[in-house]
Every structure is written in C-alpha cells, then in structure tokens.
C-alpha cells in the first residue's frame, strides 16, 4: 500500500513536471522548424534541423540586444553590490541614531511598484538628456538596493564580533574590515543576491520600454518585443529569438542553483 502510494505520488509529480516543461520544450523544438510548418501542425517533431530561424534572429539584432543586456546587467549589479555592502555593514555593525528608521525607509522599496515612479523619472531623464544606458541603470540600482541590503545585513549580523574587534585593534578602518573580512566570508550571500538582481534586471520591461530611445540600445525584453513586431507571422524566428534570450540565464541558473536556493532559504526566513 505504501509503495503504491509512493508510486502514485511520483507519477503525479512526473506528470506535473512534464506539463511545466512542455511550453519550454515546445519552444526549443519549434525554433528548429519552418514557421509555416509550425502553424500547420504545432506539435510535430521536425525530421531535420532547420536553422534559418536562428539566422533571422541574428539579423534581427538579437545578438546586439544580448550584448546590451549583458552590459546593463553587469554594471547595475556591480554598482548595487558596491553601494549595498557598506550600507549593510553599517546597519549590521554600527550603532547610530535612526538606524532602524533608515533601514525601514530603504525596505519600503521592496513593495513600491515601478509604475509609481515612471513619470517623474521619465521627465527627469528627458530634462537632463541622460543617455539610454544611464537612464535605466539608475532606477535598476535603486530598486536593487533594498533586497541586497536586507540579505547582506542578515548575513553580516551572523559574523562573530571578535573578528571585527581584532581588526579594529590592529588599526583597520571600517571599509578595510568590510572589504577584507566581511565580504570574503559573505561570498555565498553576495553570489545569491547578485544572481537575483541579475535575473530581475535581465527581465525588466517597463523602465526599458519607456527610457530607452534608440533601437540600437534596446535590452533583450524590449528587443524581443520589437523583433516580434517585425516577424509577426514567422513563428519559427520568434521562437529562435526567445530561445537565444533564455539560454544565458539558464546556464547561470544551473551553475549557481545551489547558491540560489540557499540564499532564498535564508532570505525567506529572516
């Protein structure tokens, strides 16, 4: 009876897993089929690989969008960490008046919808004639701060105080302590939070849609949308574009999966 139960449960989960994966499997298979065939028989499996879709995706500047997204993501994440680490350190280790209030102030950012700041920032960007990249990196950094400060602070609090005291006796300043003691110890937390922010920025749509003026500066989400507009009838090309857009994050996710899960665990419980 128990065995039967287990088998039933495993069967159920396997079925659910298949349903979950189906759209993605369909996408990858479809990207290797001519668009016309896809519309005639959406579920058929191709007899041979048809690569023209990827050529179309390449000509549609998907490669350029990938590059833009990579640049914007890396710069934003580096700045987020560079700004969050000292703040997290201060909140975790230094006693100053108003520290709780300031922390709460920053944490409100976790709940604020992007749309609530879209118009003033749009005005600001056009008034200052800020370049496309800077226009989106600014808000990405600001919205990335709350979660990063929160997770790093949680990690820093756990680091034993003796380490810090010893360093102070040796005459090290706070920045030095942060950089050479806290950051190396907190590497798993930094990795987790970096991946989280990278995933968010890589996927972000509203800011990119409004703030990027020039087509050559599009990040992947906006780029994919405009690519779809140009290839509205060519499903194969759309699916190839989608597949290309998904691959980099998939690799990152599979490589750092363990970190992500551990980080999420820590973050969710705090």
């Amino acid at each position: 009876m128990r065995r039967l139960n287990t088998m039933l449960r495993d069967g159920l989960f396997a079925l659910l897993a298949l349903v979950f994966m189906l759209p993605l499997i369909w996408t990858v298979i479809g990207s290797f089929r001519p668009g016309g065939d896809l519309r005639v028989s959406p579920w058929a499996v191709p007899a041979k690989l048809y690569l023209d879709n990827y050529a179309a995706a390449w000509e549609g500047r998907i490669g350029l969008y990938l590059l833009n997204s990579t640049f914007v993501t890396i710069v934003s994440v580096v700045v987020i960490i560079a700004l969050s680490a000292p703040a997290a350190y201060a909140f975790a280790r230094l006693r100053f008046s108003g520290s709780t209030a300031t922390l709460s102030f920053i944490l409100t950012g976790l709940l604020i919808p992007a749309h609530a700041v879209l118009i003033p920032l749009y005005q600001l960007n056009s008034a200052l004639k800020v370049g496309d990249y800077l226009a989106i990196i600014g808000p990405y950094v600001a919205f990335g701060l709350p979660l990063t400060v929160l997770l790093l602070r949680a990690y820093f609090v756990e680091i034993p105080g003796e380490l810090m005291e010893a360093a102070i006796i040796d005459g090290a300043g706070h920045l030095r302590i942060l950089w050479s003691i806290f950051m190396p110890i907190a590497r798993p937390a930094v990795a987790t939070v970096a991946i989280f922010q990278a995933a968010w920025i890589w996927n972000e749509l509203p800011f990119a849609l409004v703030f990027i003026n020039e087509g050559g500066h599009y990040t992947l989400p906006v780029g994919l949308l405009s690519f779809q507009g140009e290839h509205i009838a060519n499903w194969g090309a759309i699916l190839a574009g989608v597949t290309v857009a998904v691959i980099p994050l998939m690799i990152l996710y599979l490589a750092f999966q363990r970190h992500i899960i551990r980080g999420l665990t820590a973050g969710a419980l705090k």
């Binding site: 604020i112 600001a142 709350p146």
Partner: peptide, 19 residues
C-alpha cells in the same frame, strides 16, 4: 551607507512623492 540612501531617495522616494 549614505550613498545607498541617497540613490534610493533620488530614484524612488522623491519620484514617488512627485507622482
């Protein structure tokens, strides 16, 4: 910590009130 708070206030709090 100040830079973080400043960036946050500049890109989120101030525009929020402005909206």
């Amino acid at each position: 910590m100040l830079p973080a708070v400043a960036v946050f206030a500049f890109y989120i709090t101030y525009p929020l009130v402005h909206t």
